[in-house]
């Protein structure tokens, strides 16, 4: 795995993979949206609002997956002192914050017709709000420290502490009686929702994931190129 951690090799490989990844993400999202919004029936209880699920649930899944990937990259950067891992963690954070915000907004839009309120102080919602704050704190710390190396180190510690604390936060907020529904996809005894709803959800989840990886790679490539440009300007003695 670490042979691809060389920036030059990473640029070559990611440049070849990127178009395929983008096309796959686009196709999956298109198919998922068609199945979810047009081809699938409305729910017998929730009516058409059930379709919000197809944009809401994958966003929430991605938001959590991105935090895990970010903390993992940060840990690799911290342990192996590898700048590419630091870059990966740094560039994942804004995307994670975006997916978290998307999950919160779509959840709010779903909550209004279903629960009768835009926001409730429920365990799941609150822990996601805190996840958003963790992302924002992480981004703020990156921006606040000027030098790259201490910034990478401090933010990595924050990401790891946050990763350890997240399950505790999640658990602690469940003390409030919860309105959000429990697990219905991955649970003992198989999924509790019908296959017509499961298929578009599955496609959307895969599409969201690939979309994230596409955007992530683009962001890492941009950061590498920006650094090369900066060092070129410095090498020519120009005042950038």
């Amino acid at each position: 795995m670490f042979q691809y951690a060389n920036p030059a090799r990473f640029m070559a490989l990611s440049g070849r993979v990127l178009p395929w990844l983008a096309v796959a993400a686009g196709l999956l999202l298109a198919a998922g949206l068609y199945l979810g919004l047009i081809a699938s029936p409305p729910d017998y209880q929730q009516g058409d609002t059930v379709r919000i699920m197809y944009v809401h649930v994958p966003a929430a899944w991605c938001a959590m997956m991105i935090y895990a990937l970010m903390a993992l990259s940060a840990a690799i950067g911290l342990i192996n002192r590898h700048p590419l891992a630091d870059l990966a963690a740094k560039t994942a954070a804004p995307l994670g914050a975006l997916f978290t915000a998307l999950a919160l907004i779509t959840g709010s839009l779903w909550g209004k017709p279903m629960w009768g309120a835009w926001w409730v102080w429920d365990g799941r919602l609150t822990s996601f709000l805190i996840l958003l704050f963790l992302y924002l704190g992480y981004i703020a710390l990156w921006n606040a420290i000027e030098d790259e190396v201490p910034a990478a180190r401090a933010t990595a510690v924050l990401a790891i502490v946050g990763a350890v604390n997240l399950p505790i936060i999640e658990f602690s907020v469940r003390w409030w009686t919860t309105l959000h529904q429990g697990e219905s996809i991955i649970r003992a005894g198989g999924p509790s929702i019908a296959a017509v709803f499961l298929w578009p959800l599955f496609l959307m989840a895969l599409g969201y994931t690939l979309l994230f990886f596409t955007l992530w790679i683009v962001r890492i490539r941009t950061e590498i190129l920006a650094r090369r440009a900066r060092s070129l300007i410095l090498a020519e003695g120009g005042a950038a």
């Binding site: 963790l134 704190g137 703020a140 710390l141 946050g162 604390n165 936060i169 602690s172």
Partner: peptide, 17 residues
């Protein structure tokens, strides 16, 4: 200035319990 943004989310369990 950014200390509250880093610390407050992490201490929420203490507040809740």
């Amino acid at each position: 200035l950014i200390l509250p943004l880093l610390v407050l989310p992490l201490v929420t369990p203490a507040l809740i319990f």
